[in-house]
Amino acid sequence: MTDTTISNAIAVRDTGPGALVAQHRQDIELVMPSHMQKRVGAWIRTTQGLLRRDPKLMEAAQNDPGQFMAVLMDAANLGLTPGTEQYYLVPRWNKKKGCTEVTGVRGYQGEIELMYRAGAVSSVIVEVVYEADRFEYRPGRDERPLHEIDWDAEHRGELRLAYAYAVMKDGATSKVVVLNRGHIAKAKAKSDSASGKYPHLSPWATDTEAMWMKTAAHRLTKWVPTSAEYMREQLRAHAEVAAELRPAPVTPGPQPAGLTDTDEGPIEAEFVDDEEA
C-alpha cells in the first residue's frame, strides 16, 4: 500500500482538518525541500494522528481551517515535522475571533536542523544549566563554555541558564549565546501561546526545558546561517573564483610577413667555436 493510498484511507475517516491535510498533499509537497518530498506521506499521517489524539488542537483547527493550513505550509516550507520538538502545533486564543486557532511554534530541534541544513556548521551545542551545575564562560578569554554536571545528583535544582554555540566547518567556534532567567522571561512574555487564554497548552508549560533551549538556539541563528541559500551562495562564489583562476585561452597572433603555413620556422642551431671549425 502506497503513502498516497494510506493517506486517502485516513482522509475517509477524517471529515474535518485531517481530510483537509490530505487534500492539500500536492501543495504541501510542492513547498517542501527536496529531501523531504519522499516522506510527505509520513508527514501527513503524523499530522493527522496528532489531530486525532488532541481534541483541543482538533477544535482549534476546525475553528479556522485556513489558519491551520497556513501553519502547516510554514512547517512544510521549513522542512520540519509538525507536532514534534522541531515544530509544535499549539491552540491559541484569538480575541477578535472569539475562539481558538492553531499556531506554530518552532522548537529547538527545528532551529538546530535549519543550521545543519545550511551546510556551514559541523556541530551545534545547545544546553541548559541547572543550579547544581558548574558553568564558566568569560568572553574574550574562553573559546567555549565549561559546563560540568554531577550525573549522580538526584536533583540538579532549578533551571538557571541556557547556552548555545556552533562549531563551524573550518573548526572555528561561533559566537557563544548565554541566556539567564531574565532573558528567558522576556522571550516567554512575547510568546502568543504562553500568554494566551490557554497557557497550560503551550510548550512553555509542557516542555519548559526544551523552550529554554529553543530560545538560546534561536538567538544563535543571528550568528549562524540557517538557510540553504547560504550553501548556494558559497557554491556560486567558489565557481566564480575558479573561473577567475582558470587561465585564459591563448589566441594565436598574426604571422610575420612573408611566412606561410608551409614555411618552416627558424632552425635551431648551436654556436660553434671558430677554432674548432
Results as ranks from 00 to 15, higher is better:
Met1Arg: 12
Thr2Asn: 11
Thr4Pro: 06
Thr5Ser: 11
Val12His: 12
Val12Pro: 02
Gly18Val: 10
Gly18Lys: 08
Leu20Thr: 15
Leu20Phe: 14
Ala22Leu: 07
Gln23Thr: 15
Arg25Trp: 12
Gln26Leu: 10
Ile28Asp: 11
Pro33Ile: 10
His35Ile: 13
Val40Met: 08
Val40Leu: 11
Gly41Gln: 00
Gly41Ala: 12
Ala42Leu: 11
Gln48His: 10
Gln48Tyr: 03
Arg52Trp: 15
Pro55Ile: 09
Pro55Val: 13
Lys56Glu: 14
Leu57Lys: 12
Met58Val: 02
Glu59Pro: 06
Glu59Asp: 09
Gln62Gly: 03
Pro65Ile: 15
Pro65Ser: 04
Ala70Lys: 06
Ala75Gln: 07
Ala75Phe: 01
Ala75Asp: 04
Asn77Gln: 13
Thr81Cys: 10
Gly83Asn: 05
Thr84Ile: 01
Thr84Pro: 01
Glu85His: 13
Gln86Val: 13
Tyr87Arg: 05
Leu89Val: 11
Pro91Trp: 07
Arg92Asp: 03
Gly98Glu: 14
Gly98Cys: 14
Tyr108Trp: 15
Tyr108Arg: 06
Arg117Lys: 15
Val121Asp: 04
Val121Pro: 00
Ser123Gly: 14
Val124Asn: 04
Ile125Met: 05
Val126Ser: 03
Val128Glu: 03
Glu131Tyr: 06
Arg134Ser: 01
Glu136Asn: 12
Tyr137Gln: 01
Gly140Asn: 06
Glu143Pro: 01
Pro145Phe: 05
Ile149Asn: 02
Asp152Glu: 08
Asp152Arg: 09
Ala153Phe: 02
Gly157Tyr: 01
Leu161Gln: 00
Ala172Gly: 08
Lys175Gly: 07
Val177Trp: 00
Val178Cys: 01
Asn180Tyr: 04
Asn180Glu: 07
Arg181Ala: 07
Arg181Asn: 04
Lys190Pro: 00
Ser195Pro: 12
Tyr198Cys: 09
His200Trp: 10
Ser202Asn: 03
Ala205Gly: 14
Thr206His: 02
Thr208Leu: 05
Thr215Gln: 02
His218Tyr: 02
Arg219Leu: 02
Pro225Glu: 05
Ser227Met: 03
Glu229Tyr: 08
Met231Ser: 12
Glu233Gln: 15
Arg236Asn: 11
Ala237Val: 04
Glu240Pro: 00
Ala243Asn: 05
Leu245Pro: 00
Pro249Phe: 01
Val250Gln: 01
Pro252His: 03
Pro252Ile: 06
Gly258Cys: 01
Asp261Ile: 08
Ala269Ile: 09
Glu270Arg: 14
Phe271Ile: 08
Asp274His: 02
